[in-house]
Amino acid sequence: MRSSLTRRACAAALLLASTLSPAVATAAARPADPAQPTARAAHARLLGEKTVPYKLDFQGTTVGGLSGIDRDPCTGEYVFISDDRGYTQPARFYTAKLDVDAGGVHAVDFTGTHSFRRPDGSPYPSPALDDGNAVDPEEIRVDPVACDYWWGQEGDRPKTAGPPVIQPSIRFASPSSGAYLGELPLPGNYAITADRGPRRNQAIEALTFEARGRVLTSAIEGPLLQDGPEPTTEHGALVRVTKQRRDGSVLGQFAYPLEKIFAVNDPNSPWGPDTGVPSILAFPDDPDRYLVLERTWVAGAGYKVRLFEATTRGATDVKDLDSLATDGEAVKPMRKKLVADFHDLGLSTVDNTEGMTWGPYLGRGERALILVSDDNFAEDAVTQLVALGIR
């Protein structure tokens, strides 16, 4: 059981710290300096991995679809979001204690679960109801100021006429009950319209706070309709990354270069390739520097998961550009460097990795990075916790 007094005290301390440290927000809002050198690229090594049993029953729910993870600084526990839209149980999150150190992931012990709640207190309905109020949860972050849960859901662009459009959103929830606490205004180009905005299943999947909680960065999973075609084996694509203040005002929007598809899709498969940015994570000491996760699935070839380091420093602010395809000839995208290809780490399997967060400090300049894969509630997939050492 969480102590509300402890949480309030922790939140007050964090708020005081952020008040005493305005330089972070100023740094995030300042114009990029192309002449500033890039920091030394991060290096990753595998610490270990742990698998959660398939369809684990926990407090009457089915653990699965874990597409986001973050650490709660007020409790020391971790929170996971399930991307179950209500087909198994209502949209929900889990809390857990993780035993992670330089030797790997030793234990994953779930401690609680709650459904996310609508403003009227009811759980979100299944999309089968077609009432326009369903959600598609994808990412969760703990607010460093108040320790509330901010979660992103990518809405729905229906494949056919008839079902309602569900707009993507970033909402706030109580960690003790899942109660609705509010919503962040999003940039206008994040909205789904007939011929503009995010593609189906390619809206908000990635969120991250900078260390003091003054700035929230979000990334669209794939290119907006107006920003050009999806990646192919011949070319990549540009996806939008947005920095916002807590009131929703946009500090800047930048173009992140998504890799091209790594293999040819099986022509006999009914499914085409799927690629995008499922998670982004700010470095604690640099509000312009991020780890970016790219996850690709190709029929007949499986998954390719890569971790990149990227920076908005020196990149063009594209928030006022209507289209990166027609107006973006002079756009300078975010610079990025490969940190790890998961096929090179020695993992037992490379699966649908979608979430990541910082773990404990390991000493000598190294910190754990913890990642989780979404099993899509499928028996041939896996819920895999991976710990990397990042230096």
Rank of each mutant, 00 (worst) to 15 (best):
S169R: 15
R367S: 07
G272W: 08
G103I: 07
P284Q: 11
L56W: 08
I390S: 07
A28V: 08
G213P: 01
L345W: 08
C147F: 03
A32V: 12
A191C: 02
R367T: 10
L184D: 02
R391V: 05
L347D: 06
N189E: 12
D288F: 00
A11Y: 05
L47S: 02
A96H: 02
A23M: 10
G86N: 06
D195Y: 09
S174K: 05
R306T: 14
E205S: 00
D322K: 15
D374H: 11
E329F: 10
S218N: 08
E329S: 14
D322T: 15
A282Y: 01
P123H: 01
D375H: 07
G346P: 13
D101A: 09
L98K: 12
V305D: 04
T232K: 10
W150R: 01
D351P: 07
N133T: 13
R212W: 12
Q89S: 11
W151G: 02
M356L: 15
P270K: 12
S3D: 15
V142S: 08
V339P: 01
P198I: 06
G188D: 13
S348Q: 13
A378S: 14
Q384L: 14
A179N: 08
D286V: 00
P163Q: 06
A219W: 10
E230S: 10
K319T: 14
N201F: 04
E366F: 04
T6I: 11
A179D: 13
P73D: 09
D156E: 14
I280N: 02
L225C: 10
R45G: 13
F209L: 10
T111K: 04
P158A: 11
G355M: 01
A96R: 04
G328P: 11
L321W: 09
S82C: 05
I81K: 00
E138M: 04
V241L: 11
A146M: 05
S126P: 10
A41T: 10
G103S: 15
Y361Q: 14
G197C: 05
V100G: 05
